[in-house]
């Protein structure tokens, strides 16, 4: 069955696939997860802050992002980010952003909506007595969040946050629609150039599968350990 296939194409393009493609994918995943977590936590704090207007805005943002398909959001941001840059800096021309930064902004903004929901649940899972006790000790709101609530919320939610990061890792493949050479993009460029779709897509699928499986196995072990501590 595989007689007419040429799996050597994988070996020939190995450097490009991993040094360029996978590096792009993993860097994007890591930075977007970090940025999304920070921005997402801010959104969660806004929603729980008690300021009605602030909470409403944050809520609308989360609902908007969660209603839209990622592909559409990717198109939106790739075309829009330079104009936002122009608006922010007051420049006379759109700001040159580049493919990587633009994708990074897209994923941070998009994932923040999902991370914020996780962090919100995490913050709400902390019993009310704790912030009350912190305040009784004379800690300010900021200190209470920084030293008491957020570290615990983060630890409780770590498995969920990591699972979401695995989803993010898979979702970064969608930058394919912009011809950006992430891992899948690189694979498809080789596939189309050499007419080797079968070999390259099977290989890409296997790589994504192995990485995601190992990662979710790790998360499961972590989850078991956390459950044990509690």
């Amino acid at each position: 069955m595989f007689a007419s296939f040429d799996f050597d194409v994988i070996r020939r393009s190995f450097g490009y696939l991993f040094l360029d493609g996978m590096t792009f994918t993993l860097t994007l995943t890591g930075l977007a997860a970090l940025g999304g977590l920070i921005f997402g936590t801010l959104i969660a704090l806004m929603r729980l802050s008690g300021f009605k207007l602030l909470g409403r805005i944050a809520g609308l943002y989360v609902d908007l992002m969660r209603s839209l398909p990622l592909v559409l959001v990717i198109f939106w941001f790739y075309f829009l980010v330079p104009y936002i840059g122009q608006w922010v800096t007051g420049s006379s021309r759109p700001i040159q952003v580049g493919a990587f930064t633009s994708s990074l902004v897209t994923f941070i903004m998009f994932e923040a909506a999902y991370f914020s929901e996780i962090m919100r649940a995490g913050i709400q899972s902390i019993s009310k007595g704790q912030p009350a006790a912190a305040q009784a000790l004379g800690l300010t709101y900021r200190q209470t969040m920084r030293y008491v609530v957020l570290p615990q919320a983060f630890r409780n939610m770590l498995p969920v946050l990591l699972t979401q990061t695995i989803v993010l890792f898979q979702d970064t493949s969608l930058v394919y629609v912009l011809s950006i050479p992430d891992f899948l993009g690189a694979a498809s460029k080789v596939a189309q150039r050499d007419g080797r779709l079968v070999e390259m897509y099977l290989f890409a699928a296997a790589v994504y599968f192995i990485i995601s499986c190992l990662a979710s196995f790790g998360v499961r072990r972590l989850q078991a350990r956390i459950a044990f501590v509690h």
């Binding site: 493949s173 899948l184 099977l202 995601s212």
Partner: peptide
């Protein structure tokens, strides 16, 4: 569940669309 959850949807569609008919 693990099979379908651990590959990006885009890659899965490529497998069904571009790879399966050739196999």
């Amino acid at each position: 569940v693990e099979f379908f959850r651990n590959m990006p949807l885009l890659v899965q569609l490529f497998i069904w669309f571009f790879v399966l008919p050739e196999l």
